[in-house]
Design a protein around this nucleic acid. Structure first.
Lengths: 259, 259
DNA sequence: ACCAATGGTTCGAAAAATGAACCGAAGAAA
DNA sequence: TTTCTTCGGTTCATTTTTCGAACCATTGGT
């Protein structure tokens, strides 16, 4: 494994519930020697990618990410565009909406919007990793991914996160066939109890799937009329977001809901 | 130079005016062999830190920065706090306000706020690098930096960006003495013609300077009364931002304006 | 007082990186 | 149409860097 890849892989151990990590802990988590981790962290620190904090000298992600993220967003304003579209989708459906992007072999929430109307709503966090097999966004992405990517994701151990989580690859593949036909996925309680989500894939300028846009709502609110409204609004704004991002739909992609 | 440092240094060539760079161009800019650059970029790309785009296969910053910046901001909400305080400072002064942070040997704009009142205003961009010798923020930072850092920054070639830019290190040092005494800096037309800026340093929990908060206005509006108003508001909100970020003032720091 | 775990350091051996030279493709110039 | 230049990309003997077992001082818990 290359040295750069090794250093960058250390950054993946930071997440919302573990924002600081000590040297020895990071060595254990990564399986690398403590001296190696120390040296790699020193190089990341010298460039502002990590910094040390507190009496115990733990590490956390550094300020360089703010600048580079701002430059990335200036060049490719995905978050900004997504926020605009999610606000409209939210206004139309009165439910939580979010966009997630593929990053290597994970699906990461880019941004989300809440509807103010209801007392109960589905809550989100950006930068969180979603799974593919048991989220509407994940299923939307797998349905339109290259076959080898889908095979690789379904070959992994699939966590049964809730009693309703489907973990049988054959059943998931059958679901993916239907998602490809309809252009939209849904998931009921597979990732979170009592949450019913719909999602549509998002595409780049070469018709490759890059992520998904989704609407998540408490299952109790999901009357047939409400689901039909959500599907119409999601299709409209999903196609709109792909277009705004300069993307194109793959041939045969379902633009209208089937009769 | 370590391999990780070498790879990360490639990221510094991207900026607002150069959001995509070809392989050969990046080799020329960095002084590294094309094969080396290619290999380093491949490792950055595998982890989502850069991506290739367009027919010419140029590189640009990748989506991984969005996730890691979000995690960083979740852990250390500097941008969020800064935006809150800048909005208030803006409301008080009716001028453009911004916060910049030290990143290695550069000063980088974190965020800014515009006042809606005036037809003319000073415009900003985040993620842009400021210089130390000819900006109010830079002078505020240098005045409270460790002497070796200040010496190193003043030992560099100092660009005469406008006819009013001071480039004589001795004159700048005299200015820094006055900034230390008053706790505030100002700069007239050193970085941008017809712009008069005031700035205050920001400190961390160990009383080290980490950046500056500033107010920038067209020189034509700078009556004595307006300048006094700006200084009072800047001192109040500058001290407030240091406090909100969990920072402490160094001993002897000027908390009140001198009679 | 003792022990365990921390962050940090060293240097001969092992592994990875380097870069001159090369390739095919594409576009510009003659 | 042909030639030339520059591009992104690749190779592998040589060079450089990284590795990690063993060590250190410090700190906190028992």
């Amino acid at each position: 494994m290359g040295t750069v890849a090794k250093a960058l892989s250390l950054l993946d151990f930071f997440n919302r519930s573990r924002s600081t990590i000590g040297l020895s802990d990071l060595a254990r988590l990564s399986g690398l020697n403590k001296a190696t981790v120390h040296r790699l962290l020193s190089e990341l620190q010298a460039q502002g990618f990590v910094e040390q904090t507190g009496a115990a000298r733990e590490y956390r992600l550094g300020p360089a990410f703010l600048r580079l993220a701002a430059l990335r967003e200036a060049a490719v304003p995905m978050r900004d565009l997504a926020q605009t579209v999610l606000a409209d989708l939210c206004a139309a459906t009165h439910e939580t909406t979010h966009v997630s992007l593929i990053q290597n072999d994970a699906l990461v929430t880019l941004t989300y919007a809440y509807a103010p109307l209801h007392g109960t709503r589905v809550t989100m966090e950006d930068a969180e990793r979603l799974t593919f097999h048991n989220t509407a966004s994940g299923l939307a992405v797998l349905a339109f991914s290259p076959p080898d990517f889908t095979d690789a994701m379904l070959a992994r151990p699939l966590e049964k996160r809730t009693p309703l989580t489907v973990t049988d690859p054959a059943r998931i593949r059958a679901t993916l066939t239907r998602v490809r036909e309809s252009g939209m996925s849904q998931c009921v309680g597979g990732f979170e109890d009592d949450v019913h989500s719909h999602a549509m894939p998002l595409f780049d300028s070469e018709t490759r799937v890059i992520g998904a846009i989704a609407v998540a709502a408490p299952s109790a609110r999901m009357t047939p009329d409400h689901q039909a409204l959500i599907r119409r609004a999601l299709r409209h704004h999903g196609l709109r977001l792909t277009r705004l991002m300069g993307g194109f739909l793959p041939d045969g992609f379902q633009r209208e809901e089937a009769a």
